[in-house]
């Protein structure tokens, strides 16, 4: 199963195993990663699972939808060109090794 790494604002990192068909948000909440709040539970409504995708990975993710784009404008932390909502990132086998940086706040 693909593994992904979350890097916290203080530089510490957590590498976690995902299970088939899971989103990066679901994997993070299942493993209790601090910094992913996911208030709406993955329904693309709240923008509290915001991540910055590592530069080396950003281009390999499917494009941002209009809904996600609008939600990212409302994220608590600054929106950057590599901002994504982790509930919208399906961890497929090709994303094994994905690196996601956590923002300093989600609300």
């Amino acid at each position: 199963m693909p593994a992904i790494t979350f890097i916290h604002p203080d530089g510490k990192s957590d590498r976690i195993e995902t299970s088939g068909g899971e989103s990066a948000m679901q994997a993070a909440t299942r493993h209790g990663i601090d910094g992913i709040l996911a208030e709406c539970g993955g329904n693309a409504m709240c923008a509290t699972c915001h991540v910055y995708v590592d530069e080396s990975w950003f281009a390999r993710l499917p494009a941002v939808t209009d809904d996600e784009d609008a939600l990212l404008d409302g994220a608590a932390a600054e929106r950057l060109p590599n901002s994504r909502l982790s509930c919208q990132i399906n961890v497929t086998p090709e994303l094994d090794g994905l690196v996601l940086h956590l923002p300093d706040r989600q609300v």
Partner: peptide
């Protein structure tokens, strides 16, 4: 959703 969005 738009009227009650995070941005709103």
């Amino acid at each position: 959703s738009k009227v009650l969005s995070p941005t709103a």
